[in-house]
């Protein structure tokens, strides 16, 4: 578990970092918190020749509310997100999700930008980012662009980012009136990652579900919106029975992944159960 040799750069600005990425092309890898990259380097599953550590670039971390959006710097750690007062009030789903990532050491080092960029199919944030309709802001040689979460996660460990692009910020909407959100997770007993993780954002009106957004992680090769569930929820007064009925569609249209711990069939079942639970909890929080 000793990584292959690599060259290390510690750029002071985003511009400098992009310059390094352009220069070294496929040989280069961005390093943020290192909690996804270093483990695979130690197993020599990744052997980048050049490491571009963006950790010393100022202005890439921190959380600020900005009208109807909350902007979170790419280098903001899971721990900072879990504890942030602004997020707790304006987008509690993200704080709730951050709180169940890994363990304290992981939350102290790991960053939201790194988690999004790594796109592990069992990572927690992607469920929330999808359910929230978050935007990922990236800067590359050609300037800044904003990628909707729904277009960002392309497949397992693959995103819409170009190798020369750096995520600088993620934006999530402020929780609207009458809306509640919840994240429910079945952690893998070994890795702590989500066997199934479901983020639900539910808007209630007159005791009925007006809209719902359900993000699911851990189940398929990439995180997805459970659109069949969302549709089935609309217009329902949410109780155990109606929620369960809608949640039964949680793995519809995806190919549930199986492993030693949970078969695909069982994951699909868990997806339904955790979707039901997330929906009911979110609905109970909708005020």
């Amino acid at each position: 578990m000793i990584p292959a040799a690599f060259e290390y750069f510690s750029p002071q600005s985003v511009k400098e970092a992009i310059g390094l990425l352009e220069k070294h092309g496929d040989d280069a890898k961005i390093l943020a918190g290192g909690h996804s990259l270093l483990p695979i380097m130690k197993l020599r599953l990744a052997q980048p020749k050049v490491i571009v550590d963006i950790g010393r670039i100022s202005g890439l971390s921190g959380i600020k509310a900005d009208g109807q959006k909350v902007a979170i710097g790419a280098l903001t750690t899971h721990d900072a997100i879990e504890r942030d007062a602004v997020l707790k009030e304006k987008c509690p789903l993200l704080a709730e999700t951050a709180a169940v990532i890994g363990d304290m050491q992981v939350r102290n080092r790991g960053t939201i930008g790194g988690s999004a960029a790594h796109a592990d199919p069992a990572a927690d944030y992607p469920a929330a980012l999808l359910a929230l309709g978050a935007e990922i802001v990236a800067i590359g040689p050609k300037g800044t662009r904003t990628i909707p979460a729904g277009e960002f996660f392309v497949e397992m460990l693959t995103t819409a980012l170009k190798p020369t692009e750096i995520i600088t910020e993620l934006r999530v909407p402020v929780l609207a009136r009458g809306t509640g959100a919840a994240y429910q997770k079945h952690p893998h007993p070994a890795s702590g990652y989500a066997v199934v993780g479901v983020a639900a954002v539910v808007t209630m009106s007159g005791g009925k579900c007006q809209s719902a957004a359900i993000g699911v992680t851990g189940v398929a090769g990439k995180p997805y919106r459970a659109t069949a569930v969302e549709k089935a929820l609309i217009g329902q007064s949410l109780d155990e029975t109606t929620a369960a009925k809608a949640a039964a569609h949680a793995a519809e249209g995806v190919d549930p992944q199986g492993d030693l711990y949970a078969s695909g069939q069982f994951r699909a079942h868990l997806a339904s159960v955790y979707t039901k639970r997330a929906v009911l909890l979110a609905a109970s929080r909708a005020k």
């Binding site: 197993l43 363990d103 893998h188 007993p189 070994a190 890795s191 990652y193 030693l260």
Partner: peptide, 26 residues
């Protein structure tokens, strides 16, 4: 009783080859 178990593939590869696969209790 609840978590641990080493597993081999039929080819003799250790499937639970890291702590991300083998559930050391916490």
């Amino acid at each position: 009783a609840l978590y641990e178990g080493a597993a081999y593939g039929r080819d003799g590869q250790l499937i639970t080859g890291t702590m991300a696969d083998y559930a050391v209790p916490k």
